[in-house]
């Protein structure tokens, strides 16, 4: 599903299919089980909840994703991110906080990703939070 760049939405946007936004949205976006893509022309001023969020445009507001937030080159996020995985490309803009623990804690039974060989081990106290 695509929302074109001439579309402006004010209010709550929710759905149960993957969505690509090129227009403007102000308010709240709720796609808890789906992927939200903010296209290069998309400008969002909203609280965002989705399974995964791919940002090529601009988001001003907090972003919560149960799987991943991916800010691509030239993508911009001004707000806090809560997601177990966050990827920020070189050239992306981000200002805010990233919390990968709280998002993990919301999915009990899902073990934290173990560090690959040679990678740093999680700080011991931080593990308690996800437990």
């Amino acid at each position: 599903m695509n929302i074109g760049k001439s579309v402006i939405i004010k209010g709550e946007l929710s759905g149960s299919e993957d969505l690509t936004l090129e227009g403007h949205v102000e308010g709240r976006i709720d796609l808890k089980d789906n992927v939200l893509t903010i296209g290069p022309n998309g400008k969002i001023k909203a609280e965002v909840f989705a399974k995964a969020v791919v940002v090529l445009g601009e988001i001003t507001g907090n972003v919560t994703a149960s799987e991943k937030v991916d800010i691509r080159d030239n993508g911009s996020v001004d707000g806090d991110i809560c997601s177990p995985r966050v990827a920020i490309a070189e050239g992306a803009h981000f200002r805010g906080a990233v919390d990968m623990q709280r998002a993990g804690a919301k999915a009990p039974g899902k073990p934290a990703t173990p560090a690959a060989p040679g990678q740093a081990q999680p700080l011991p106290q931080a593990q308690k939070v996800g437990a």
């Binding site: 919390d99 934290a112 999680p122 996800g130």
Partner: peptide
Amino acid sequence: NPLILDLGPVVGSNVTFFGEQLGCRIRV
């Protein structure tokens, strides 16, 4: 769940390192 304040420009791999590998909250 330590909170780290990073005063530099955002570096994706640093966010992954501190957040995903070490379990920190990071504020850029």
